[in-house]
């Protein structure tokens, strides 16, 4: 179960951040923001093997005591970040991967909406619904 989901534009500002209401929202904002350091490092092409460059899923970015932060970057340099509770050990890697794939697909749908201006914050209701589903379902 994700506790926070974020979509970041390629200029590194947030297009969409949602976190579970129970927790302090600022904490998650900071977490997502600082995880960008690791994302940037991973996607920088200096001295990396070719294989890494094609991989969209970045995996576990870094562990904190209470949360695990995962990252994913599209070829257009849009980044997705999912934060899950550390205690949720049942969540496996390929489940996280499928969550990202769903996010990516929904994001593509949002982009295809002619009324959506790329670069604006995402206000699509169907995107919201998809994210809510990801945040509530027990994985």
């Amino acid at each position: 179960m994700a506790v926070c989901i974020a979509v970041i534009a390629k200029e590194n500002y947030p297009l969409y951040i949602r976190s579970i209401p129970a927790e302090n929202k600022l904490k998650f904002h900071y977490m997502v923001h600082t995880s960008l350091d690791v994302v940037e490092e991973k996607i920088s092409t200096v001295g990396k093997a070719l294989v890494d460059q094609r991989e969209l899923y970045l995996g576990l970015l870094y562990p904190t005591e209470d949360y695990k932060v995962y990252g994913y970057v599209t070829n257009s340099k849009v980044k997705f970040v999912i934060v899950v509770d550390s205690s949720n050990t049942a969540l496996r890697d390929n489940e996280i991967r499928s969550m990202f794939r769903k996010l990516h697909n929904s994001y593509t749908d949002v982009m295809c909406n002619p009324f959506y201006n790329p670069g604006d914050t995402i206000q699509s209701k169907s995107f919201d619904t998809m994210v809510s589903g990801m945040m509530l379902q027990a994985c």
């Binding site: 295809c112 909406n113 002619p114 009324f115 959506y116 699509s124």
Partner: peptide, 10 residues
Amino acid sequence: VDFVELPDNH
């Protein structure tokens, strides 16, 4: 209308 969501002011 695939992918389309009407904004509120329309």
